[in-house]
Amino acid sequence: MISPTNSSISDLVSPSIRHSMTNLEFFFKHIYLLLLVIVGCIGNIFVIIIFGQKAVRTTVRCAGSSMSVYPFLFYMAISDTMYLIILFCLWLSNYINVLHRSGICQLTLYLTYVCNFINAYYTIAFTAQRLFAVINPFRVSHFLSWYRSRCIALSIIIFACLLYSYLPILIGIVDGKCYSRPQFRWINKYMDIIDSIIVFLIPYIVIITMNTIILISLRRMKQNRHELLFQNHSQLNSIREMTRRNASRKMTKLLLTVSTSYLIICAPYACIHTWRLINDRGEESKSPQLIKKLEYYSHFIYHISFAMNFYIYIVFGSKFRRELKRVLTKSKQNIYRCFHERKDFENDNQLELELTEKNSTMTIEYTFNTNINNINNKHNILRNYFCCHFNM
């Protein structure tokens, strides 16, 4: 079956629908992108502050396995912020030419691919940690730590940077736009298929499998937790073990929500994009226009995965809410203290200025009086001299 061309689709679609599609495209390109960048950057900055502060890192080392995922969440927030900055440049390109320049084109596209990879495989990494914590809770503290998680997180970043190092060679400015170079277009097509398999297909299979095992294990743990808890522990150790497991279970549920949300948000774009790449054997123009439109709008929905984590942490993470409240309270106190110190400093300066002016006035008066006294003394001396001289 031959897919309809652009003109045939335009003939079939009514003017009102075309007008609605134009309004929808305007909304996504000019309003939605900017709102997403603002909301996402605010949330990611709070995540970076909370997970990056020294107090949390100390708590992580003391808490053990349940908090060993924090390095992934910290570096993921940095990666998501970089992606949102690129989206801001994309929004800005509606008004000025920002992205379609040599050098900037290659850099932004390279960082986009790297951030996509990091987002997918950090989700795999902390889901795998939670799976290990659920399956083998007694040995988890020996294997999971802040230092190991940080090393794995940095290794994923380095691997992603090396994996996509070919992109600046294949991409360039073609007819004034950032696009794949004509001589490398066939290579870029196959590399995009491989990238879709690496970033979408493999993570989806792995995350769905691990989440299923985690859910089954959590249900079994809920049924048998009292029997396992008091079997080999004293009462005090059992209470401690129950507290540790409750914290671990809360963290597992939080990260299970994060990974499931990632799957749901990314699913439309991942399916449509991969299907189009595999079935597009000819030129790009041969792809059905409906598929292109669906891919175009689902890509906007995919961007939400880089801005949503902060709000999931707030809703489902009680410890994160406490840390956020503490950070906001501390910031408010610092601003209040800074304001009062500035006000006191200004008052001290004003007082010092008034004292300086008063001292200068007194000095002038004293000098004036001294000069008058000196003149009077000289006048008296001269008068005495003349009087004595006249008497003689």
Rank of each mutant, 00 (worst) to 15 (best):
V327M: 11
V47N: 11
C115S: 15
K293M: 05
Y166H: 14
R240E: 04
I214Y: 06
M82E: 05
P268K: 05
R61A: 02
L215G: 10
E341K: 06
H389Q: 12
H142S: 14
K293S: 05
S14R: 15
L290Q: 04
S79A: 12
C178K: 05
K343E: 03
L87M: 11
H30M: 05
V258I: 15
V134C: 14
N116P: 00
S7C: 07
R150A: 09
F368L: 08
I152C: 07
H30V: 08
N349S: 14
F27E: 03
R101A: 12
C62D: 13
I193F: 11
E241T: 12
R150Q: 12
K330S: 15
Y113Q: 11
V56G: 02
L92Q: 09
S360D: 13
G176Q: 09
A267K: 00
R101W: 10
S298C: 09
Y385P: 00
S149D: 08
R57D: 05
T22V: 09
G317A: 05
S238M: 03
M392Y: 11
H226I: 10
E341V: 06
M251Y: 05
F368H: 14
K250T: 05
I17M: 11
L73S: 04
W186K: 10
Q106N: 07
F390W: 01
N44K: 03
M242C: 06
L90C: 09
E365D: 09
Y313H: 15
N371I: 11
N119E: 08
C62M: 11
C338E: 13
L170T: 02
N349R: 15
S68R: 14
E284H: 13
S79G: 10
L92E: 03
S259Y: 00
H340A: 00
V60F: 00
C388V: 03
N376E: 15
C178F: 01
F28L: 08
I171Q: 08
R245G: 06
I372Y: 07
L92I: 00
I48P: 07
F184I: 01
A307H: 04
R148Q: 04
S318T: 09
I45A: 07
A153V: 00
V258A: 03
G103C: 07
K189C: 02
R219T: 06
I304A: 01
S141L: 01
F138E: 15
S285N: 12
A125F: 01
I264R: 02
V327A: 14
N377S: 13
P288K: 02
